[in-house]
Amino acid sequence: MNRLVTVAEMTLRELVRRRGVLLLLLLMPLTFWLIRRDSHVGQSVRALLLGISWAVSTAALFATSAARELEPRLRLAGYRPHHLYLGRMLGLWALGLAVSVPFFLLTVFDANNLRYAGIAVAMLCCVAVAAPLGMLIGALLPREMEGTLLLLTVVAVQMLLDPTSSAAKLMPFWSSREIASWAVDHTDDGYLSRGVLHAAVVTALMLVTVAGLFGVRLRRRRHLRHAPLV
């Protein structure tokens, strides 16, 4: 438990000290919101949610890439793989929640007639999915540039796809779009439950994949045997 918390804490400390990155993290959802501000409020809420998703997954991607050299070392220092990826994920989730709070308040003060609980749940789903997604891409693609481009593609496709198409349901952030509809357009509760279920499934899938990847990368090598200390 202590190891998990320590990794989470150091992930947070590290990210919070990257002031430039943090500023851009906050700036991106804000601009997304402002650009769509004049049109339908639903558009700006959806853009804001995508902005948060993009920001948190990018942070996760960078944190994962930055720790690439360090993790084998921590493994030798006594950490198990799950301490490393779960700890990092916890840190990223905490950061994502902290980043979401001001944006939630923004929707409360800047828009009327919304189901605010829905906005909050949608943001939670974004953060829940974004952290493991960024970590997954960071673990698969060793270079940050490639990872960033892939992430950009995912978010752009998500934005452009017709949400009612079946392909859209395969996208990681489809949940937030469904829940946003419930919150903005006051659609039936099916939207909310479908969204939450989608987010839960996607998060779980991503988590398992990340666990698998880390487990393989940080596995005990077969050629190395440990003898008892005499």
Partner: peptide
């Protein structure tokens, strides 16, 4: 090919990149 047997705990210091820039 080959095998390594280690007794006790291992410590490893890489040539570079073992530290965390923002800590």
């Amino acid at each position: 090919a080959g095998e390594v047997t280690v007794a006790g705990r291992l410590g490893y210091c890489p040539q570079q990149g073992g530290t965390i820039d923002f800590l």
